[in-house]
C-alpha cells in the first residue's frame, strides 16, 4: 500500500552520514522518517497494544522496544573500567614490549606478525583503535627501522625514491591494522558486529547461534591472513630489488 515510499528513510541515512552529521541523530531520524512513511503512528498507548486485535505499534513504542531488546549489543561497555585501569598500569606498554620482542627480519614479516596479533586481540573480544594505540607509536617506527630507509641525507635523486618507499611502508602498516581488526573481531561471539547481526536477524524472524557465526568466520580470517601475507611479502620483494 505504501510501496517504496519508506525507502526515503534510507536516503535520510545516506545523506545524513554523507554530510557528517552526528551519526546517532542520523540513525534515529532515519528510523522516524521510515516509520512515518510506512504509515505508523508516532505513539500508541500501551493499553491499545494489549487490546484484541492489537493496534499497530507506534514509532516511539517500537524504537523503545527495539533499543531495550538490543541492549546486549552495547554490553561491551561493562568491560571498560577493567581495561582502562589496566591501561593506566601499563597494559599497552606491556603489549608493545611483547611486539618489540618479535625478531622479524623484514618489514613484511613484521606486518604479518602484527596482523596476527590484531586478530588475536579481536578474538579476545577487545575493541581498540589500533592506529593510534599501536601503528603510529610502534609498528611504524619498527618498520622504518627494518626497511632501513635512509635519512633524507642521500642525494636528490634517491630522495624521491626513498619517499615513495616510505609512503608504501606507511600505507601497508595501516592496512595490516585494518585487516587484522576487521576480520579478527568476528572470532569473538561478544563483539558488537556479530551481536548486531544476531539482533538484526532476530528482528527478521531468525534466531541464530553466535558460535555458528564464529565458526563460519574462520575461513574468512584464514583467507585474510593469507592474502595479507602475500601483499606484505610482495612489499619485501620490491624492497629487496630496490636495495640492489
Amino acid at each position: 500500500m505504501t510501496g517504496s515510499l519508506p525507502l526515503l528513510g534510507l536516503l535520510v541515512l545516506g545523506v545524513g552520514l554523507l554530510l557528517r552529521l552526528r551519526p546517532a541523530l542520523v540513525v534515529v531520524a532515519a528510523a522516524v522518517v521510515t516509520g512515518l512513511l510506512a504509515g505508523m503512528p508516532i505513539y500508541r498507548a500501551e493499553l491499545q497494544l494489549l487490546a484484541d486485535p492489537p493496534a499497530p505499534e507506534g514509532i516511539l513504542n517500537m524504537l523503545g522496544r527495539a533499543f531495550v531488546e538490543n541492549r546486549f549489543v552495547s554490553l561491551f561497555i561493562i568491560t571498560l573500567p577493567a581495561i582502562a585501569l589496566s591501561e593506566r598500569f601499563g597494559l599497552q606498554e606491556r603489549a608493545a614490549a611483547v611486539i618489540q620482542q618479535v625478531r622479524a627480519a623484514t618489514v613484511g614479516r613484521l606486518q604479518i606478525v602484527y596482523q596476527l596479533f590484531r586478530v588475536l586481540v579481536g578474538a579476545l573480544g577487545i575493541r581498540l583503535n589500533g592506529h593510534a594505540a599501536f601503528v603510529r607509536p610502534l609498528l611504524f617506527p619498527m618498520s622504518v627501522g627494518l626497511g632501513a630507509v635512509e635519512p633524507p641525507l642521500a642525494q636528490a635523486a634517491s630522495l624521491e625514491k626513498d619517499e615513495r618507499r616510505l609512503e608504501e611502508i606507511k600505507a601497508t602498516d595501516a592496512a595490516a591494522e585494518n585487516y587484522g581488526n576487521f576480520y579478527g573481531q568476528n572470532l569473538s561471539p561478544v563483539q558488537p558486529g556479530i551481536l548486531l547481526v544476531y539482533g538484526a536477524l532476530k528482528a527478521l524472524g531468525y534466531e541464530v547461534s553466535l558460535w555458528r557465526m564464529v565458526l563460519f568466520s574462520v575461513p574468512v580470517v584464514c583467507s585474510s591472513l593469507i592474502l595479507g601475507a602475500v601483499q606484505f611479502l610482495l612489499l619485501d620483494r620490491r624492497e629487496r630489488r630496490r636495495g640492489r
Binding site: 528513510g9 551519526p23 546517532a24 534515529v28 512513511l37 517500537m62 524504537l63 538490543n70 538484526a200
Partner: peptide
C-alpha cells in the same frame, strides 16, 4: 551506535 543500528533494523523490518 551499533545498538541504535540494530533498532533501526527492527523499524526497517516493520516498514
Amino acid at each position: 551506535l551499533p545498538q541504535l543500528l540494530a533498532s533501526l533494523g527492527v523499524i526497517f523490518t516493520a516498514a
